[in-house]
Design a protein around this nucleic acid. Structure first.
Length: 870
DNA sequence: TCTGTCACG
DNA sequence: ACGTACGTGACAGAA
């Protein structure tokens, strides 16, 4: 690009200009392509900036009698406004769009002539446009000075009328002020001719835009521009006849389809792999298929069902594949008993321990089949989990995997049951031919994904992690979900009533103190009450959408100003408890089992942790007295059972000690010391027994901070201490634990060199931003580099333990169940006579899951509910 | 559908 | 002047 006039006039303009952020730089070519694709006129001229081109064209258009709107958020465009030229400022965040004419500009800038906008900007500067302005002069001073003197030049000629630092600055930086004014001036003499014909908006060019949209994953925009059919597969032509398993014999029915190969076209939704899908809907065919499958060492399967909740959905059909491009679909009748008859053909192969089962999100299929009396056994290969290990930060849905790795766009489910929302169709009612294509394709693609992922898993050194941990864990989680947990509904109902009364009470008090009734749960309304009506903080911070910040940390700093604050915090707490737990949990009880069955997601947390949904059982309250009450509702199966909880003690810090090999920390754990107290003793240089409560609290915060890669700022915020003090504590910490400092440096260097970090079991997390030039972005990646191996190794450890415990329970034929996992805790529902066994079993397998150079401590507890078990 | 808030480890 | 400790999921309100 040629240097612009402005660059020539003010060379430091370019020198001072910060490098364009890399993510923005990467986006610009796409912006050009999109603008072109939409047939939006694009005018560029080497050596001139967009502002100047727009200004020049605006003036020419005005001369021709047009009314002109410059659509821009830039404030410097105010200088262009005339009777017929307006600035149209687009809506942004909380603010609506504005049309600015002469009147508005004069008001906004407090000037008598729009041209004075330039003078103000010259004084004030504009960091967005890299206009330096005059140091020490902000918006207010600039406006005052212009009101008094009228122009930059007049001010500079009369600095004798000013005094102090202001005069000094104006005199010293007079040159810079004049240059700034020049930079702020929009040039109106660009050598360009207005040609109205060239400015007419064209129609979007579908051929140009579709591949772009596909690449950028602009699904919603695609639908808006091209209609709902965008990204939706057109039905392929059908042909072919058959009768046996491979369609060899003749038949009058055209039920099997073979399509010709069509090269993949991203976003075009072309069915693009040669394939033959068969329908196995007669006893003979089903028998033959089952027999064929029974001879395989591995087969791929998928279930079609009426819903996404495996504890509720009904089976609609099954699909199988054993080689790419070939698959069978077996329909299952709506009637459950009849479905079981169909499944009877396949039960032996599913329960054959020697045959590997391949699938996408196999836990779903396993849970579903379990409800039909099939106990899926044997090794698994789950493509979703395989990809989770290959690249945990990305998405693992079958559709995206097929598109990214096979260049193939599968039939979207919406083709069969319509778009999501109110009147979604039922899988049960879909045309057999369509469902066969869809279902068989799923099994076919999944098998192909397996073939693709196997070498990738090897390359990522994750084969063992997959085969020994993630795949076997599927069976464990399926069993846990199926077991579910028992909920004491009356306890929650009682709790709900108490909460309701207290909430009403608090509400009354708050309205009284505020002097108005309002919705306390609305951050918008609450912010207005606190900061406008009550004026609790003149410097209140706002969120990016323009609302006042009302988070807990903000409110706590206001507690001394008005006691309404603590009422609000309490109101929030109770409201949260009531809506998220107390009232929600009973509604999650499965009517068939009378228990709550969470769903563990094995492929969402980038570090390797599990997550829990519907309901989330990993965030049941414990930190506050009222919240803890909820745990009393988590009760054993019956009076003959108890809840047993097994908790890793300080697992992440122990892992830090192990991985860093820091002698001091290893020693503290070796001696069985309270690690936070030991850390405080070291950091403050006092004997263990003289550590104060405050010192221990600070040390504990640092210990946690280390795990997250925090800064002095973060620590000072967290502890409410000055930054310098926080910095000192951290410095002392690293002086006392030099191994940890070294480990952290090594980890970040490893990440910078390899682009990923890994856990003890070689679970990788790629950190694409680790070498970013952007400090904020890189800082984020660096903290991830520190945290991911720690959090992830803890996840590795408990997963290994879970598999071992599950195996032992099965082997010993015990009746107790493992029911919940909360990151460092396992919860069991155990018959009283098995408690001793389970205690020993859990402790043993949790301690020995991984080979560690530091003692691992497991805390066990039992009780009539989850709270008591702690 | 997004945002703010808050529950957990 | 900014941003600032990791990983999650659910709910209410706003858009």
């Amino acid at each position: 690009m040629a240097p612009t006039n402005r660059h020539i006039e003010f060379e430091s303009y370019k020198a001072n200009r910060q490098a364009i952020p890399e993510d923005l730089a990467a986006a610009i070519p796409y912006v050009y392509k999109l603008v072109e694709g939409f047939n939006i006129p694009l005018i560029t001229l080497d050596g001139y900036e967009a502002d100047d081109i727009i200004g020049t064209l605006a003036k020419q258009a005005e001369a021709k009698g047009y009314t002109v709107y410059c659509m821009t958020p830039d404030k410097d465009f105010g200088q262009l406004v005339t009777e017929s030229i307006f600035v149209y400022k687009p809506a942004r965040l909380g603010n609506g769009a504005e049309t600015l004419g002469i009147k508005e500009i004069l008001e906004k800038w407090e000037v008598s002539d729009v041209k004075q906008v330039i003078d103000i900007l010259g004084l004030w500067g504009d960091s967005v446009d890299n206009i330096p302005g005059i140091p020490g002069i902000g918006e207010k001073t600039a406006k005052d000075l212009i009101k008094r003197f009228g122009s930059m030049e007049a001010i500079l000629a009369n600095t004798n009328q000013l005094k102090g630092k202001q005069r000094e600055n104006l005199e010293t930086f007079a040159e810079q002020g004049l240059i700034s004014k020049k930079l702020a001036t929009i040039q109106l003499d660009v050598p360009i001719e207005l040609d109205e014909e060239r400015l007419i908006l064209g129609q979007p060019d579908q051929e140009a835009l579709e591949p772009l949209f596909a690449e950028l994953e602009f699904r919603t925009l695609g639908k808006r521009v091209f209609g709902e059919e965008f990204n939706v597969l057109t039905t392929p032509p059908t042909s072919g006849t058959q009768m046996d398993l491979f369609g060899n014999a003749a038949s009058t029915e055209a039920t099997n389809t073979t399509t010709e190969y069509v090269p993949p076209v991203a976003g075009k939704n072309v069915h693009n792999t040669p394939h033959t899908y068969f329908l196995a809907d007669t006893p003979v065919l089903k028998q033959e298929l089952a027999s064929l499958l029974s001879k395989q060492r591995s087969f791929c399967f998928d279930t079609e069902t009426t819903g996404t909740d495996a504890n509720v959905a009904d089976l609609v059909g099954l699909s199988f594949s054993i080689e790419p491009g070939t698959a069978w679909y077996v329909p299952a009748p709506p009637d459950r008993a009849e479905s079981m008859q169909v499944l009877a053909y396949f039960k032996p192969i599913f329960e054959d321990e020697t045959i590997e089962k391949v699938g996408q999100n196999t836990k779903y299929d396993i849970l579903l089949l379990a409800r039909y009396g099939i106990n899926v056994k044997g090794p698994l290969f789950d493509t979703m989990l395989a990809h989770y290990l290959i690249d945990p930060d990305t998405r693992h849905g079958m559709d995206v995997l097929a598109e990214n790795y096979l260049g193939y766009t599968p039939i979207p489910i919406t083709d069969l049951i319509g778009p999501r929302g109110k009147k979604q169709g039922n899988m049960q009612d879909v045309d057999m031919e369509a469902i066969k294509e869809y279902a068989a394709e799923d099994a076919d693609i999944t098998l192909q994904l397996k073939a693709t992922f196997e070498p990738l898993l090897e390359k990522a050194e994750a084969v063992e992690l997959a085969q020994k941990v993630e795949f076997p864990l599927v069976h464990v989680l399926a069993d846990m979900e199926q077991s579910g947990v028992n909920i004491d509904v009356p306890v929650l109902q009682q709790l709900s009533e108490t909460l309701a009364t207290d909430i009403v009470e608090l509400e009354k008090t708050i309205f009284q103190k505020a002097g108005v009734r309002f919705n306390i749960a609305s951050p918008k309304q609450l912010g207005e009450i606190l900061f406008e009506k009550l004026q609790l903080d003149p410097k209140a911070k706002k969120t990016k959408t323009g609302q006042y910040k009302t988070g807990e940390d903000v409110l706590l700093t206001l507690a001394s100003k008005s006691d309404i604050v603590k009422d609000i915090l309490e109101f929030r707490q109770l409201q949260k408890l009531k809506s998220t737990y107390v009232d929600a949990l009973p509604m999650m009880i499965n009517p068939l089992t009378g228990r709550v069955h969470t769903s563990y997601n094995q492929a969402v947390a980038a570090t390797g942790r599990l997550s829990s949904t519907n309901p989330n059982l990993q965030n049941i309250p414990i930190r506050t007295a009222r919240g803890r009450e909820v745990r009393k509702a988590f009760i054993p199966r019956d009076e003959n059972h108890v809840i047993l909880s097994a908790d890793y003690s300080q697992i992440e810090l122990r892992l830090v000690a192990h991985m860093s090999d820091d002698k001091g920390m290893l020693d503290a754990f070796e001696k069985g010391l309270d690690i936070h107290r030991a850390t405080a003793a070291k950091v403050y240089g006092v004997p263990l027994e003289e550590v104060t409560a405050a010192q221990r609290r600070n040390a504990k915060a640092v210990n946690f901070g280390i795990i997250y890669g925090q800064s002095a700022f973060g620590l000072s915020q967290n502890l409410g201490i000055p930054r310098t003090e926080a910095a000192q504590i951290i410095e002392q910490y690293f002086a006392q634990y030099p191994g940890i400092k070294r480990y952290m440096n090594e980890t970040i260097n490893f990440a910078k060199e390899h682009g990923y970090v890994e856990t003890l079991l070689k679970r990788r997390r790629y950190l694409r931003d680790i070498n970013s030039a952007n400090q904020t972005v890189r800082g984020f990646a660096e903290r991830n580099a520190i945290n991911a191996p720690i959090q992830g190794s803890a996840a590795d450890m408990i997963k290994v333990a879970m598999i071992a415990i599950h195996e032992a329970i099965k082997k010993q034929g015990l009746n107790g169940k493992m029911t919940m996992q909360v990151h460092d805790e396992l919860v069991f529902d155990v018959p009283k006579e098995e408690v001793a066994l389970f205690r020993a079993l859990a402790e043993k397998h949790m301690k020995s899951a991984l080979n560690m150079s530091v003692p691992i401590v497991v805390e066990l507890g039992e009780g009539r509910n989850w709270l008591e078990a702690h």
